[in-house]
Design a protein around this nucleic acid. Sequence first.
DNA 1: GATGACATGTAATTCGTTACATGATTCC
DNA 2: GGAATCATGTAACGAATTACATGTCATC
Lengths: 186, 186
Amino acid sequence: MSLKHAILGFLDLEPTTGYTLQQRFAGSVGSFWTATQSQIYRELHALQADGFLQVEVVPQKGRPPRKVYALTASGRSELRHWLGQPSPPLQLRDPLLLKLVFADRAPPEELDAVLAQHEHELSLRQAEYAARLESPEIFELARTSRERVLWELSIENGLAWCTAQLEWTREARRRLDKVGRPRRKK
Amino acid sequence: MSLKHAILGFLDLEPTTGYTLQQRFAGSVGSFWTATQSQIYRELHALQADGFLQVEVVPQKGRPPRKVYALTASGRSELRHWLGQPSPPLQLRDPLLLKLVFADRAPPEELDAVLAQHEHELSLRQAEYAARLESPEIFELARTSRERVLWELSIENGLAWCTAQLEWTREARRRLDKVGRPRRKK
DNA sequence: GATGACATGTAATTCGTTACATGATTCC
DNA sequence: GGAATCATGTAACGAATTACATGTCATC
């Protein structure tokens, strides 16, 4: 249900086209909510059919017309309503942890390689988050200073997550190195 | 693709029925990978059709027959192969962060209530993880001491995640309290 | 007498990904 | 000449959720 509200949220910030929304998803919230082009267009049509959006079609030469979507009154109230609701608890699906649970079947070196790779990716991500916090253009659209803080917090969440994961990964490698090869429990 | 391998992993640990698998998913790995009953039965049929599983049907009185699934040689090698592969980077979908990004449209008290609720749920989860680490029955199926460490690590990952999130949530509430009501940026 | 554990499944629907399809303009 | 940007969409498939459907036995 969240994609719907994310779109409403973006269009409340600034009425715009599906194409632009796509870029917003890839850029600003991409790290904690992705959406593909097909999903976006499908949802825009649905939201319009439900009366949450209205469209202004702006013809262009040589290109498909820009369809600029904006919230209707009912769209705005739907957004407001969603904001007040408690969020469903996030349930993550982590393929790495799944692998870890069954990893005793494979040689330790293999798992360590997987973890090393993971560690590397995490540190890249961490650097990305840190860079985003520093780049001013991300916060340009912010309308109030509170909004700015909200956006900072969303990035800091990612940063904190990365850091915690990195620490865990390092600790995991250390501990696994210490136990060595699998030996039957007595 | 991970559900498939999770099932192979569980059945490698101990051949069993769809019903039991359901409980394993709800219990042991439930915090980082969920699967519903329909998903499990569907996947079991598919895995069998692919030759990764074989079934032993044990009739029962008054109940549907137990269908005990076990890995075939090809199932075992599929599992081994998956274990060596790098995991696809986990991409999380966090509805709370999404809400945060658009929350400037609603009064600060509303968001704070949402965050307070979130904080409360996190601390419950944290306690759950801590309890799991202490409960010996979870580690009973472990075949080697290394496997035991692997399972501990998977729980500790959840614990670390919870702790990091809790800290973030508290910090977020403090910061938002300090900025107060939205005021137009100058 | 009701609830929960045991045990199987199917059907409908929604959500998400990948691939296909078109076409002008601008920049390198 | 080729790639990137702008701009729309459809189709097919796969993964996940929810609801439906059945039936016994043991326990409270």
